[in-house]
Design a protein around this nucleic acid. Structure first.
Length: 503
RNA sequence: CGCGGGGUGGAGCAGCCUGGUAGCUCAUUAGGCUCAUAACCUAAAGGUCGAGAGUUCAAAUCUCUCCCCCGCAACCA
């Protein structure tokens, strides 16, 4: 295992408020970051998130809001930061593409690629919709009308800058083929490989004329142009953690061979991250990230969530109603990572009641009650040599738990739901064991040693589970710690009171 | 003949690569228990594994054909 770990979310486009999808990616990355902080030494994990603040859509949204672009993004970025706070996101750095450190690096990268002749200028043809102020390429059109407003388009041609990504097609194909961890899950790797096999890459247009779009990073070798948003955006992963030196070498404490680099993304931006980005890095002479992990989408009532459909779920409302950790748990558990999931409040309530209230919450609560009842709230000290077969089984289950969670979580597949299933194994075993051990009889018959051994194993299970759960549900983990982490218990209200009569 | 993903008990999924009693969670039903949040434990019912053909001693699993659903312009997790 590499000694350092660097994980990123995409930088989110701030043309509108954050929704469930943004929160999903970020919670997933946060969980991994928290897990890795426990696995590696302190200070060896860097978790980066941020915002993408340039481009036409933002310019337009700002205009509509009657604000300057900068004022507009300053306003929206606050919403993202607040949401991350609410969701207990432990990011170490937050990059904005309007920050100096980023602009500097983007311009340097552009200049280097230009000097290396990786970027060239060419005439670019397309159709322009004057009322919308949007430029459309041939491939974006189905007829001669503006896809947005259905008005006639005007054919224009202009000079733009292009990045020679076509030259790297074979290299990229082989890189992906030879590094099965590079694109995860495997089905996504196949998707990209077949895309590369079936298509010839066309050079990427990385500029926009300034007269049409002023809200962007100026291209250093042309006063007439700003940088295309995707080229701008992808660079954030390196601009946040390093700089180019005078010789054009990228220098960073988080991009060396001792660091495992992971980009967590949604499946919608797979191509940018597995085609454009590696080629940009390659052309700049920078090493590849280890893994680009693409998760699925949350569907709302089986339909794609979109701003135009108006079915966007606001994470804050869900958190208000059910709690942060319930939300985090639901997203990470309800769907195998990588696939699309269906979001609904019914599904949350179901998960809440069965996993959190009935299994975990109830185990803690019934255990606390027994400690209160049989030991006046003082947790009996550990005893060696429990000879009961069932206790041994449970003990070995919690001993291997951290390894199993690591297997599920530290590998490139990032199997959150499997990890949580593993954590629930001892919970279920413990609940079952209560039935078998019949502590109420042990108490009546005054079998002290057996009762103690019984209580101890429950306490051990709960503590281990709380510990294993901390990357997923940090707040819950500390509540468990608070209630049963010390010599004397501190019984509170049930962690997850069942939600009743929902329909 | 465009590409890819999918179609498995009521719901959601695993199994398919490396054929050999079809499994998990939830829901349902019956019973048990009382430490506990009407919770927990046990048991049962429920599937011709989209359709058809083929290979095989044996197919959810391999091959072929067909049907149905989803995605494949852009913005977007």
């Amino acid at each position: 295992m590499k000694s350092k770990f660097y994980i990123t979310t995409p930088i989110y486009y701030v043309n509108a408020s954050p929704h469930i999808g943004h929160s999903y990616t970020t919670i997933a990355a946060d969980t991994i970051a928290r897990f890795m902080r426990k696995a590696l030494k302190e200070g060896n994990v860097l978790f980066l998130t941020g915002t993408d603040e340039h481009g036409q859509k933002i310019q337009k949204a700002a205009d509509e809001a009657g604000l300057s672009a900068q004022e507009f993004v300053d306003k929206v970025v606050v919403q993202f930061r607040n949401l991350w706070k609410t969701l207990n996101i432990s990011y170490d750095d937050f990059i904005r593409t309007t920050q100096d450190r980023h602009i500097r690096t983007v311009q340097k990268a552009l200049q280097m690629l230009y000097d290396k002749k990786e970027i060239y200028s060419a005439e670019y043809q397309g159709w322009y919709c004057t009322p919308c102020e949007i430029f459309w390429t041939e491939t974006q059109l189905t007829d001669s009308l503006c896809p947005d407003c259905r008005r006639p388009l005007e054919k224009i041609s202009e000079v733009n800058y292009f990045f020679k990504i076509s030259a790297y097609q074979d290299w990229l194909f082989n890189h992906i083929k030879n590094n099965p961890c590079f694109i995860q899950p495997a089905s996504r790797q196949e998707e990209i490989l077949s895309f590369l096999k079936m298509n010839t890459l066309t050079d990427l247009c990385i500029s926009r004329p300034r007269q049409r779009l002023s809200w962007g990073i100026p291209v250093p070798f042309s006063k007439e142009h700003v940088t295309y948003v995707w080229f701008d955006a992808l660079i954030n992963y390196i601009s946040a953690v390093g700089e180019f030196d005078d010789k054009g070498n990228y220098v960073s404490g988080w991009w060396g061979d001792d660091t495992r680099i992971v980009h967590m993304i949604g499946k919608d931006i797979l191509r940018q991250h597995t085609v454009y980005w590696p080629i940009m890095l390659k052309a700049l002479g920078i090493r590849m990230p280890d893994t680009v992990c693409a998760h699925g989408w949350w569907l709302i009532d089986a339909a794609k969530m979109s701003k135009s459909r108006g079915n966007v779920v606001n994470p804050l409302e869900v958190v208000d109603k059910y709690g942060v950790d319930v939300y985090r748990y639901f997203l990470l558990k309800d769907v195998p990572f990588g696939l699309d999931g269906n979001f609904s409040e019914e599904a949350i309530v179901k998960r809440f009641n069965s996993d959190l209230a009935n299994d975990l919450g109830n185990l803690l609560y019934r255990t606390l009650t027994m400690i209160e009842k049989y030991y006046q709230g003082v947790i009996p000290s550990p005893r060696d040599g429990a000879h009961d077969e069932r206790i041994k089984n449970i003990a070995s289950c919690i001993t291997s738990l951290s390894r199993e969670v690591e297997d599920a979580l530290a590998k490139a597949t990032f199997n959150f739901s499997l990890a949580l299933e593993k954590i629930w194994e001892p919970i279920n075993m413990a609940n079952k064991y209560v039935e078998e051990a019949k502590p109420w009889n042990l108490a009546k018959e005054n079998k002290k040693e057996e009762l103690e051994a019984f209580i101890r194993i429950l306490v051990d299970v709960i503590r281990q589970v709380g510990n294993a759960l901390s990357p997923f549900m940090p707040q819950t983990a500390s509540l468990i710690e608070e209630q049963i982490g010390r010599d004397k218990i501190s019984k509170g209200r049930p962690l997850f009171p069942r939600i009743e009569n929902k329909r």
